[in-house]
Nucleic acid binder design. Sequence first.
DNA 1: TCAAAAGTGTTCTCAATACACCCATGA
DNA 2: TCATGGGTGTATTGAGAACACTTTTGA
Lengths: 249, 249
Amino acid sequence: MFFFAYFASRTFFLQTNNTLFMDSYADKDKFYVAVDCIIFGFDNGKLKLLVFNRKIDPYRNLLSLIGSFVKIGESVSEASVRILKEFTGLENVYMKELKTYSSVDRDPGYRCLSVAQYALIRINDEINVLIKEKGAKWVDIEEIPQLILDHNEMVTDALIRIRKISRYKPIGFELLPQKFTIPKLQMLYEAIYQRELDSRNFRKKILSFDVIIKLEEKDRVSSKKGAYLYQFDHHKYKKLQKSGYNFEV
Amino acid sequence: MFFFAYFASRTFFLQTNNTLFMDSYADKDKFYVAVDCIIFGFDNGKLKLLVFNRKIDPYRNLLSLIGSFVKIGESVSEASVRILKEFTGLENVYMKELKTYSSVDRDPGYRCLSVAQYALIRINDEINVLIKEKGAKWVDIEEIPQLILDHNEMVTDALIRIRKISRYKPIGFELLPQKFTIPKLQMLYEAIYQRELDSRNFRKKILSFDVIIKLEEKDRVSSKKGAYLYQFDHHKYKKLQKSGYNFEV
DNA sequence: TCAAAAGTGTTCTCAATACACCCATGA
DNA sequence: TCATGGGTGTATTGAGAACACTTTTGA
């Protein structure tokens, strides 16, 4: 590593290989690079997607994912963190790269490629205020509207991805409040997989992972009897992760 | 779709929103975009990586992945297909996007991001001749040499990815010749997972997938008794794929 | 008292795993 | 004849899937 840091430095090349170096880059094409975030939330028993009503051209008044151009002084992931913070106020969000969209004709305006990222966030009132200010809103994933460019394709790909990922990572907890009930967790997984799960088997499976802590409190919002609240145990999860655990529900 | 194809056309924006449109792009940064291919092969019971001895600056005489800059008139995947064809003569190769590497300091020369792709190819003599001409060579994945830039990181990430993918896709068949024996297939999976598998259980599992066809011929290269040759049944596989099959070995 | 959601156990099936010997053949 | 790799079967264990009733309580 150290060896390369030295020999590969810009100074080295400019001093010794100036012509060749310049030649090898000078005729290369440059691209606008965007980042688009597929942001999922979970509310009222439904999986939601954050979309943005564009107030500027191009595509004024059309719906789009939350996105931005990447700046020269930041990485793609830094750009996605920046844009997520701007729209939701959140930092330290679960966000992963989906893939790069780069068809020649994907943006009829300019040659631009986009690195799509998917994110899972916990919806709360504070976030919803900021979202509204920004002209963004939540839509149900079962009723995704027409979005600009190839954004609908990105959403479809992201849904496929989170279904896959959720089989071996407990991503469900990223979308729920810190305190949640098992029935709520089940509803979330049913929303992700788009199928019903057996409550007895689900409960058994989730508890067998041994990564949630039962609290004394109950949530009485969605039933009279009330359901016990649980908390995710990040500490235990980290241990399990190291031993290669499987979270398929 | 049709609606957007019409309203989002370049003409539309140039006519009606010319100023705004130009403004919104004019101040944005542009990037060199590269594609780097992590190309795996399987030979002599070992999983191999294709590396390239650079004959030009920058990084002359250092080892690198097979890569190229993306041209303005092609997508990232088109660029990776082009470069793979150039170096191996192969088309229709199993190749998937790994991820985008875009750290600000990843290339000390210029601001350049790279979309890494991993590919699985069937090694044969013809390919090896071309590879040699191009100054590339196979290295054992257990002894990956120092590569330029962040290419070692790409290789590590790609290995993790193929281990994951191989649990639910029969990628092994991409790396073997059209006709292969079960012991060879097992060696390949042992190379991917870096652990020994039980031959009885492996055979049982593989045959239970019901996607390989037993041939009458035997391969006597690696044993006196000889091992029956098999062929992958693409047709049956496609059917299974639709029903969401799991190929974990 | 009843509607609505929470919570609980058992059985069956099937796949994963562990494990050891005989077979065919060329050298 | 023997060394080398190929090929086979069974028993055990554990996880997944199917399945129905009781509990709690506010309206």
